[in-house]
Write a protein that binds this DNA or RNA. Structure first.
Ligand SMILES: NC(=O)c1ccc[n+]([C@@H]2O[C@H](COP(=O)([O-])OP(=O)(O)OC[C@H]3O[C@@H](n4cnc5c(N)ncnc54)[C@H](O)[C@@H]3O)[C@@H](O)[C@H]2O)c1
Ligand SMILES: NC(=O)c1ccc[n+]([C@@H]2O[C@H](COP(=O)([O-])OP(=O)(O)OC[C@H]3O[C@@H](n4cnc5c(N)ncnc54)[C@H](O)[C@@H]3O)[C@@H](O)[C@H]2O)c1
Lengths: 231, 231
DNA sequence: ACGTGCTTGTGAAAGCACGCACAAAGTGGG
DNA sequence: CCCACTTTGTGCGTGCTTTCACAAGCACGT
């Protein structure tokens, strides 16, 4: 009865699950490179640093891709997760702010391997504009709209100082970019329908400091509320 | 195996709150620089990009530091949050892996202003060891234990390639470092009591891609399921 | 054909997190 | 001194997340 009409249209994957899928994907790709054909939820959960029940529930949101008594076929699962995450298509990325961080990002080779193509680098500094970074010539920020259009940029990365970030974000939005990754330590204001994620190293350090202090405080006695763990 | 019957349910600020305190702190410091003396939960919440009820509840975990009818005294609140986060003391940070990213981190000035002092840079590459980066001479990774001891390092930052990250993490732990910030795209295995946080740019991009794809899929018709927001 | 053993997929329970809405508490004017 | 107004602190309902625990499903050997 249950024919095999693949049900890829499961709307509504929990946000928490979405955030873990990339982790599973990476673990699966590592297994794949090692030639592993199938993997159990227990083993994959171990590699991803999560509880196995959570892993199974997460995967169940994509469909029933496992085989009871056996586990999951690695290659098939890699494909399914990639498809769900939208990695079967290419995404064009523009980085604005080619300073310390922007250069590091541009030179990082780990993006291209996962469907993300760095299409353009932009900066406001005349000394930086025109220089070649990671085989790309840095364009002036004034060309943002043109670059977005011509290169089909769909993801904008902001690596400018905090003071310039909101302006850059607004221009991205104006140009039609609806996905933004922000490294500047400011809260960006964007209209509905635009997805902004931030990476803030200072905040990470402060969270670590909080836990470290707590550990030091309640020392000796009940220091067990200590570590979160793993990643 | 590790069952923990006794629930350590004592003094506890929710994890979600801890993650937002640094955001409030930054907003408060911006107000402080502008000379603002007091601020309402509504105004501060706006600056931090959160709901005002959430802000008030978060702050209530630290104590009753507001005045009804008036708001919060900026300076006092800055102090209280700083103290809670452990920023009234200095934290010594060591960065391992002085490549693209490690150099950007070392050159970033935004840490020192918040109680974090970059105390040492370490690398394994003979070409990198001995060079001066951000006024620090890069030490060889073999000196990790010595450096941790002599500089009182309490936070370790890992910016090495993925393959080296676990080894570096283990050495950090062995040397007594219980807080680790990991940029390498691997799940680190550490003993209980060690706090690891990860920053993974690829994951952020993949989450953006997921939402972007969803937006593109259900276009035109019900595109309202669209953007989150965050910052 | 059928039992054995292993692993998935998922109800159900428990725990968190969020945000509304409002009483309590403080300010300032009259 | 009292009243009108403002803003905090929080009780409570709602929905999301995590985890447990186990029936159902599949492979394989007999
Ligand atoms: N470097 C790090 O490790 C690090 C760590 C945490 C956060 N950050 C944040 O990342 C951002 C960048 O850091 P950085 O160290 O690379 O800074 P940086 O000063 O080295 O580089 C900033 C670059 O942005 C360019 N720029 C400034 N205004 C611009 C505009 N309006 N349009 C286009 N380009 C503009 C500048 O010309 C410069 O090249 C900052 O917001 C910083 O707070 C950096
Ligand atoms: N550059 C980026 O923007 C970026 C973005 C996302 C993730 N990452 C991750 O950050 C890490 C570093 O990236 P990168 O671009 O700086 O790489 P990189 O190759 O430029 O630098 C890595 C450095 O680590 C050193 N190293 C290697 N093994 C070591 C060891 N065992 N002990 C000490 N040092 C060692 C190398 O000598 C090198 O200097 C990688 O894991 C990468 O995946 C980087």
């Amino acid at each position: 009865m249950i024919s095999r009409p693949p049900r890829p249209r499961e709307r509504g994957i929990p946000e928490a699950t979405v955030a873990r899928l990339p982790v599973y994907l990476r673990a699966l790709q590592a297994l794949q490179e090692r030639g592993t054909a199938t993997v159990s939820s227990e083993a994959l959960a171990g590699a991803a640093g999560v509880n196995s029940a959570k892993l199974r529930k997460d995967l169940s949101h994509l469909g029933s891709y496992g085989t009871r008594g056996v586990g999951y076929e690695v290659e098939y699962l890699v494909y399914q997760i990639s498809r769900e995450l939208g990695l079967t298509q290419d995404w064009s990325v523009a980085i604005v702010g080619i300073g310390n961080l922007g250069r590091a990002l541009a030179n990082y080779g780990g993006f291209g391997t996962r469907g993300f193509r760095i299409a353009a680098l932009l900066d406001a500094d005349p000394d930086v504009v025109g220089r070649t970074v990671a085989s790309l010539s840095v364009r002036h920020i004034d060309n943002l709209e043109e670059v977005v259009r011509d290169k089909g940029v769909s993801i904008g990365v902001i690596a400018t100082p905090a003071g310039s970030a909101q302006g850059v974000a607004s221009r991205f939005v104006e140009a039609g970019v609806t996905s933004v990754l922000n490294f500047a330590p400011v809260v960006l204001n964007v209209p509905d329908g635009v997805d902004v994620r931030k990476v803030d190293l200072s905040i990470e350090l402060q969270i670590l400091a909080f836990h470290a202090q707590r550990r030091a405080d309640g020392d000796g006695r009940d220091a067990e509320r200590a570590g979160l763990e793993v990643t």
